[in-house]
């Protein structure tokens, strides 16, 4: 039994060693993957930085004549990508150099987070306010109108027919007065 167990452990070790070798052998091939200007990853990277030439575009889109920044910026990003830097590392590199202003949108942390949250918070608060207001109006209307309980909900079709009839009556009346 121990022999069988020993053989089994040896076999596992061999398989592990082969797998490790395969992974190590594959590493250079993986690392050698080269990005170019048409890579989706390049677009993701370049489009997170604002071009400062005054074009109002990010570095992926900038096509401004005479922009002295864009070509070198793109080349630099591509080099960093091909050197194996991740998107976050590239981002940190440029924000460290230029500050947050280089990014096309505020970061989702710290004070900049308020840029993202405030519109929805305001919309939510306004929505709650409108709901309360309408509830108050509806309740007030119920109190003021005794016959409210009897009034039927309006049907869209009958509303349209009523309007058409009223318009026809108005037209006829105009002919004579």
């Amino acid at each position: 039994m121990p022999d069988r167990k020993g053989r089994y452990i040896d076999m596992v070790k061999k398989i592990f060693a082969i797998m490790l070798l395969a992974v190590l052998a594959g590493m250079p091939a993986f690392a050698a993957e080269m990005y170019d200007y048409n890579s989706a990853e390049f677009k993701d990277n370049a489009s997170q930085f604002m071009c400062m030439c005054g074009c109002g575009q990010d570095h992926f889109e900038c096509n401004m004549d005479g922009c002295g920044l864009n070509d070198s910026f793109k080349t630099e990003i591509l080099e960093m990508m091909n050197d194996g830097m991740t998107q976050d590392e590239i981002k940190n590199h440029y924000t460290g150099m230029y500050g947050e202003v280089i990014l096309t949108a505020p970061e989702k942390k710290g004070f900049s987070l308020t840029a993202w949250i405030t519109p929805f918070a305001a919309l939510g608060a306004a929505g709650a306010g409108v709901t309360l207001l309408v509830r108050r109006w509806v309740n007030k209307s119920r109190l003021n109108t005794d016959h409210f309980e009897d009034s039927e909900p309006k049907d869209k079709e009958s509303e349209l027919e009523e309007e058409i009839l009223k318009a026809m009556v108005d037209e006829e009346r105009k002919k004579y007065y």
Binding site: G56, V101, P106, F111, A115, W116
Partner: peptide, 11 residues
């Protein structure tokens, strides 16, 4: 906070 930011298309 005295920090300039850009608010562009992604935002």
């Amino acid at each position: 906070r005295g920090t300039k930011v850009t608010v562009g298309i992604p935002f």
